[in-house]
Simulated assay, not measured.
Amino acid sequence: MITLEMELHANGYSYVACIDEVGRGCLLGDVVACAIIMPKGLHIEGVKDSKKLTPKKRDKLYDIILDNCIAFGIGRIDSSKIDEINIKESTREAMKLAIENLVDKFGNRIVPDYLLIDAEKINLSIPQEGIVKGDDKCHGIACASIVAKVFRDRLCLEWAKIYPEYGIDRHKGYGTKLHVEAIKKYGVTPIHRNTFLKKILDGKLK
């Protein structure tokens, strides 16, 4: 099967960066994006949309992807910035940071010559294409989704140590019943996204 990445490589693009994010719908914590450049022709068995993988499988693939990639970068936008500029703009900013943070295994900055982005457009002059459901259709975007997901899940484990009563290690910041009940019982933490909580708190958020 001829993939989009293969077509781009055949057309002379050397560094095709694939970008995805995780945490857009969470009630707390950063939105995290990953930009990754995979070698030409490499297809890692088992890679697909991170949401369709078990945590154990994601962890295993995370290591394989980072061992084999040409370069990767992570971008993070925290909850206070999300409240300030909204989640859509924060997602785009995280993606932009991830691209700017692309480095190879030796720490050298790598500038991509084409971007494949999961359902977004980024304000950069680099040629790009947004792909709806990109983590299902594009191997590189699926790789980026796995790296972003594992990276953010590990952040959640650190946040869970700071705020143990909220169960962050279990719900990862999403609006589960456990999480909502914890917010109502214990209040709002500094890492919650206040603009996401107004309905939950029935307009009582200060």
Rank of each mutant, 00 (worst) to 15 (best):
M38N: 12
K172A: 09
Y186L: 02
I19R: 08
S125Y: 01
P127M: 11
P190Q: 10
K198M: 04
G134R: 01
A182N: 10
V16Y: 05
I19M: 07
D63C: 07
G12N: 06
R154D: 13
A33C: 08
E7A: 10
S90R: 01
A182C: 10
S90Y: 01
C34E: 06
D118A: 01
G107N: 07
E129A: 12
A33N: 07
A144Y: 09
S14H: 14
G46V: 07
E181K: 12
V32A: 12
I141A: 02
E120H: 15
N86D: 11
K52E: 06
I126M: 09
I19H: 06
I110F: 01
N101L: 02
F72M: 00
D113G: 05
K199C: 00
W159Y: 15
G130N: 08
D202H: 07
C156W: 06
I44D: 14
I200K: 03
P190F: 13
V16Q: 06
C143G: 14
A35Q: 00
E93M: 14
V31D: 08
K161L: 13
I19F: 09
I183W: 03
M1A: 03
Q128H: 07
R92M: 15
G46F: 08
R76G: 00
D113I: 01
I65S: 05
K60D: 08
K51D: 04
A17S: 11
L28W: 00
D113S: 03
I183L: 14
L205E: 07
I37C: 04
D59A: 14
I183E: 04
K57F: 05
K177Q: 13
R109V: 09
M95H: 05
G130R: 07
D104M: 06
L155D: 14
G75P: 01
K121S: 14
L115N: 00
C69S: 12
L8E: 12
L197M: 07
R154Q: 15
E84I: 00
E89R: 11
D169L: 02
V31H: 08
A148K: 03
I85R: 05
E7K: 14
S14N: 15
N68R: 15
L66F: 00
E45Y: 06
N86S: 09
I44M: 13
G173L: 04
I183V: 11
R58Y: 04
G175C: 01
K184I: 10
R152I: 06
E165G: 11
K60F: 09
D30F: 02
V22G: 04
